[in-house]
Simulated assay, not measured.
Amino acid sequence: MKIDVIGDIHGCFAELQTLLSKLGYENQNGIPVHPEARKLSFVGDLTDRGPGSVNVIRCISAIIRAGAGYYSPGNHCDKLYRYLKGNDVHIVHGLETTVKELQQLDEKERREVRRQFMELYEQSPIYQVLDDGKLIVAHAGIKEKDIGRYTKRIKEFVLYGEVTGRTLENGLPERGDWARHYSGKPWIVYGHTPVLEPRMLNNTINIDTGAVFGGQLTAFRYPEKQTISVQSSLPFDSGRFREFPGLL
Rank of each mutant, 00 (worst) to 15 (best):
K155C: 09
K155N: 04
V189K: 05
C12P: 04
W187N: 01
V163A: 05
L19P: 04
Q231I: 07
R175K: 14
G30P: 08
G184F: 06
A14E: 13
T164D: 10
R240D: 01
Q103R: 08
F244N: 07
R114M: 00
R166D: 14
T193D: 11
K152C: 05
L201H: 07
V113L: 04
V212W: 11
K85I: 08
T204H: 08
R111E: 15
A219C: 09
E122N: 07
T151M: 05
A68W: 11
A138D: 02
K225F: 03
V189Y: 12
F157V: 10
G165L: 13
A62Y: 00
P32A: 02
S233E: 14
K143Q: 12
K225R: 14
V137Q: 01
Y127N: 11
R149A: 08
N55E: 15
L46W: 03
N203I: 03
W187I: 14
Q128T: 00
T209S: 02
C59T: 15
A68H: 13
K39T: 10
D88L: 11
H76V: 04
T18C: 06
M118I: 15
G69D: 11
G30M: 09
I6F: 01
H90I: 10
Q28D: 06
K39A: 05
S232G: 04
K145I: 04
M118A: 06
Y182V: 06
L159P: 04
R242P: 00
G67E: 09
A140M: 05
Q226L: 12
Y222I: 05
R175C: 06
T204C: 12
D8H: 08
Q123R: 14
A179V: 12
L20G: 04
R114N: 08
G74T: 03
P223N: 03
I126G: 00
H181N: 08
R115L: 12
P186E: 07
D146V: 03
G86S: 13
D4P: 06
A219L: 05
N202M: 09
L196R: 15
E109N: 11
L84R: 11
D131E: 13
G86A: 12
